[in-house]
């Protein structure tokens, strides 16, 4: 089997090896551009400190925890989540009811065709 052939999707094609080559070329170009920059990095200076809007960074807990991520996304979709999350009640008979509900709907559809 020729592994270099591309994966035909019917409308397009995908060849990981071509992609990798393009990726490598892009990386080389990026590194070239980067190497023309000035090297002014100094260890143990202000450059290495986290920047929090110009405020004094806290000494220990400056890792942003998972609970604080995507706050805006969750706030924007509050209406959706307030409906969706309570459906996951955690009560096992509810789970069974959902399954029987789908069976009932499918029986109606299946018997009508």
């Amino acid at each position: 089997m020729d592994v270099t052939t591309t994966l035909e999707t019917g409308y397009g094609a995908w060849s990981p090896l071509v992609w990798l080559a393009a990726f490598a070329v892009t990386m080389v170009i990026a590194l070239l551009i980067r190497s023309t920059g000035e090297s002014r990095y100094k260890k143990d200076s202000n450059q290495t400190k986290p920047f929090i809007s110009g405020n004094e960074a806290p000494q220990d807990a400056y890792h942003i925890r998972a609970g604080n991520l995507y706050w805006g996304y969750l706030e924007a979709l509050k209406g959706y989540y307030q409906k969706l999350v309570p459906l996951h009640t955690g009560i096992m008979t509810d789970y069974v009811l959902w399954m029987f509900g789908v069976v009932a709907i499918m029986l109606l559809i299946g018997l009508s065709i």
């Binding site: 999350v85 009640t89 955690g90 009560i91 096992m92 008979t93």
Partner: peptide, 10 residues
């Protein structure tokens, strides 16, 4: 009581 056995939900 199943209504109170819901250590996992959401």
């Amino acid at each position: 009581n199943v209504n109170r056995i819901r250590g996992m939900k959401g």
